[in-house]
Design a protein around this nucleic acid. Structure first.
Lengths: 197, 197, 197, 197
DNA sequence: CATGAATGAGACTTCATTCAT
DNA sequence: AATGAATGAAGTCTCATTCAT
């Protein structure tokens, strides 16, 4: 029965990560408060504050990857899948605009807990999985003939991250941006333009 | 003659910002050490740690904008100017890969010192100046016929940020990326592809 | 069970107040040391050093008033009550000769913590209670016929404070003063002379 | 020409003593500011903050004693002299109600600078002078027949301090007290009652 | 298991004092 | 003689972590 309590702590920690944009300013007391448990209890499940936050971030990514993988299985066509991917990113970003770095798997975002060697490795693993899924997605665009030649890893990374950047700009400057749905078309177009012949 | 001492502190603070990726983990003692001055001296020039870091970030941007503006004046042609812009970003990113958020003027990066209202305003001002320069740059690509129609603000923002994303990926995964010079061509191509007909 | 720990801190703070005669020179570390607790623990019970000292002074007065009230109830006759009152003052003064201002309820003595508005009010309350008891005491001297007419507030205040002054001088210049018991007679006489016809 | 500068510092320090009621909270920077001189200059004339305040207090007393002595010489009759004495005390107290301890020559008020041995001695000297003058004043009341027998030192000290207490109460509770002039009569009456047969 | 009172290392900040100008 | 920039010792306060209950 420890799993649910750990998750409680993860969710609490993550909600604070979303708000603070600054790992070291997050307080254990706040995590405990938000999780509705005692401060001491946190230390029954984790060794240190660093570990709590590190594990919480990995937990977030595990969840995200799992549902991403599931989603890819359920949606065969590239376009629907890509729109779904964008839509999910948009939603996450809507919850918290500070989270861009985390959502784009920016290694820098793991700099604090990465102090502990174990995290570096586990994060690397996670990134591999993430890129494997993205590659699978990119592969579909080729097999469906939307993109002619299979792009290099560098190229599809650039294309996908640019798509996300497009959505990021939309979130930051909603006034100067196309509508909520139109931005998805824009972002999709970015991918096609960058990888199209 | 207080300006040089203030600058000394700015440089010290910034070098720590580059390293730590986490504002609140920076210690006043470290700033003072790195500036080669006493702890108390920092407080002769600033009211609080928050202010030191906030002002230092603004200082960094002021410097960057100034040299950017100068550079734009000195380089008439779009392509040279754009390559110069990319080269500069690449160099900055080379110094510190955590700094992407700051370099892309991500408002979130200012979230800590922005607690003080004054910072919000000054940062906003800075961003306006930055975008004004970027728009000027984009305008050149139109006047030189490289881009047909003048793009919307949203579109050229997306195009330029995607260019930078391209370089960002290069820095993070140098093994899978084109050479140091080739990446500039790639980044330039991103801009042209996204805004070309 | 936090009350005893708070009281521990009060006693520690007061013993330092007695010694230092200068609020702002009292150190939190000293309070903690003397209370036999950790520095941080003080901040579990109080918000700031100022608050510790302010509350401690109020605590001292609360205690004093309580026992004074009890004493008045137990001693019916004016003379015995008055002697008891003087004796108590003498004893307090014996513990610390700097404390005169505090013992005479001099509002100035509260000037430091009174910076916080709440203290002003609570101190005012305390002073009212104190004067109510003194008035009750004075009233007895009238009802017993020791004093003819009921004196004005100003007059009995002057009389009582002069009594205390008498004891104060005794403490400061023991060589030139009457004996330990004789001074009480002197002080009592001061009261009677000043209010007697 | 150093005398006037020293005096400037004394006046500045004293004005802060009047306001703060707490020696150790007075800052050298404030003294210098108020004296209109540089911080470093203070240390040209004094060795330490403690010394500044200690000397300033002694300076105040020297001034006061000098004018008191002069006043006694100029006013032959006891009653006029006593009223003058009271009036002066009242005026001083009007400037600052925290100063009671200082004005009544309470040794406790010198506790901080008294840490330096030299001060203890000089203060003792000053008190002797002060009491000599008070005794002279008391002697007049006897020689003029207002008081029958020459009172003991303890008795006239009590009488005079009670007079001052009377004025002190007037200052603290003006609403419940007699008028500005009437209080002098009251205070005079206190003296007479306490020492009269 | 769960707690939260207690702790003290360590961070921020102040300010008396120095000293080069 | 006068200054005030620079300093660092020392004080206030925070908060991650422990541990007795």
């Amino acid at each position: 029965m420890t799993a649910p309590k750990k998750n409680l702590i993860y969710e609490a920690a993550l909600s604070l990560v979303y708000e603070s944009n600054d790992f070291s300013s997050i307080k254990v007391a706040d995590i405990a408060d938000r999780a509705g448990i005692g401060k001491g209890t946190v230390y029954e499940y984790f060794q240190s504050k660093e570990q709590v936050i590190g594990e919480a971030l990995l937990y977030m990514w595990e969840q995200a990857l799992e549902s991403f993988a599931l989603f890819l299985e359920e949606n065969e066509g590239f376009k629907e899948a890509y729109y779904g991917f964008l839509r999910n990113f948009k939603m996450q970003l809507g919850k918290n605009r500070h989270i861009y770095k985390l959502l784009t798997m920016n290694p820098a975002s793991f700099s604090v807990p990465a102090a502990i060697e174990a995290f570096k490795f586990r994060f690397e693993e996670m990134r591999e999985k993430y890129f494997a899924l993205l590659e699978k997605l990119a592969a579909r665009s080729v097999s469906e003939g939307i993109i002619k030649d299979f792009p290099s890893r560098f190229d599809w990374q650039t294309a996908i991250l640019s798509s996300l950047t497009c959505i990021y700009i939309h979130q930051h400057f909603p006034d100067e941006s196309p509508g909520e749905e139109a931005v998805l078309d824009k972002a999709y177009a970015v991918y096609v333009k960058l990888l199209g012949d």
